[in-house]
Every structure is written in structure tokens, then in C-alpha cells.
């Protein structure tokens, strides 16, 4: 008599302690579900960034609640606010101090393009000094927009060829 396998999920009693999968999938799953952000809170957007971290929007639902003010412990720099020319070198230096792999979210119009500050003092887009993965529009973006950007970043991480770069450098 043949019985149908009713196990929908992984069952150690049947499969043993072995799971067969792609290295990329595992690494990306780990990376994307625990993005530790480095809040580069520069101006108004930082308040909405704090709003996203607080109880109502609760960024912890997406595994990114561990805000690290030390760049060495962070994966994703969220540039929240206007980057001025005076601040730009510091933003770059902090980015350089972050360990690989690292990602950048440009939060809001100012960080993305200079926004409404077309003036002598404002860097017209943080992508001139650091590579940006996700741009968020809005002045400032709502916390939902930040969460959306985080989900987009997670799916971007999910498509990376992580194993190749990881084992090539090892």
C-alpha cells in the first residue's frame, strides 16, 4: 500500500539532518532578513526614520530594528536628509568604514537629488559620493515608504550572486 507523503515542510525524521539548497539562497536569506541599518540621520527625514523604528510602524517586522550607530556593525546605511558639501566627506568616510557586504538607501528627495535645496551648500544627490541601492521619493517619505524600500532592498539582496563573491575572496 502506498501512502501519500503528508509532510509539507522539512522533517528531520524523513530527510535526516541534511537540506539541499543553493548556497546563494541560504546566504541571501540570512543577509536579507537581518539587515542592520546605520542611521545616517542628517535632517528632517531622520525624524520619519525614527518614526519607522517606533512602535506604530515597527521596522522590526522586517528584521531591521537593530540600529547601529557604529558603521563597523552595520550593513545598510540609510542616508536620511540633506547632505551638504561640508558633510559629504564624513558620509563617505563612514561608508568606507562599513564592512562588506554593504548597501545604501537614499531616503528622501534631498539625499536622492538635492531636493528643494538647489543652493551653493548642498550636494545634489548622495550618489555622487556613495553608490546607492534604493532611492525613496518624498519630502520626507512616510515610514511606509521606508519599509517599502527595505523590502525592495531585501529582494535585491535575494538576487545577488553572494556565494561566488564570498568564496572567490576566501
Amino acid at each position: 500500500m502506498v501512502t501519500a507523503n503528508t509532510e509539507l515542510a522539512y522533517n528531520t525524521k524523513i530527510e535526516g539532518d541534511i537540506v539541499v539548497t543553493k548556497a546563494d539562497a541560504v546566504i541571501n536569506w540570512l543577509r536579507s532578513s537581518s539587515v542592520w541599518p546605520m542611521p545616517m540621520g542628517l535632517a528632517c527625514c531622520a525624524i520619519e526614520l525614527m518614526g519607522a523604528a517606533a512602535a506604530r510602524f515597527d521596522i522590526a517586522r522586517f528584521g531591521a530594528e537593530v540600529f547601529r550607530f557604529s558603521p563597523r556593525q552595520a550593513d545598510c546605511m540609510i542616508v536620511a536628509g540633506t547632505v551638504t558639501y561640508k558633510m559629504a566627506p564624513h558620509v563617505r568616510r563612514i561608508y568606507d568604514q562599513m564592512a562588506e557586504p554593504k548597501w545604501v538607501i537614499a531616503m528622501g528627495a534631498c539625499a536622492s537629488s538635492g531636493g528643494m535645496y538647489r543652493s551653493y551648500a548642498t550636494l545634489q544627490g548622495v550618489d555622487q559620493i556613495v553608490p546607492v541601492d534604493v532611492y525613496i521619493s518624498g519630502c520626507p517619505p512616510r515610514p511606509e515608504a521606508l519599509l517599502d524600500a527595505l523590502i525592495k532592498l531585501q529582494s535585491k539582496i535575494g538576487a545577488e550572486r553572494s556565494a561566488k563573491t564570498l568564496f572567490a575572496s576566501a
Binding site: 558639501y85 559629504a88 563617505r92 538635492g114 535645496y117 545634489q124
Partner: peptide, 12 residues
Amino acid sequence: VADLTGASAKPA
């Protein structure tokens, strides 16, 4: 940083 990125304070 200017050397690294090639950025400068340009007219907006």
C-alpha cells in the same frame, strides 16, 4: 574623499 569620488562642490 574628493580624489576617491571625483566629486566637487559644483554649482547647483
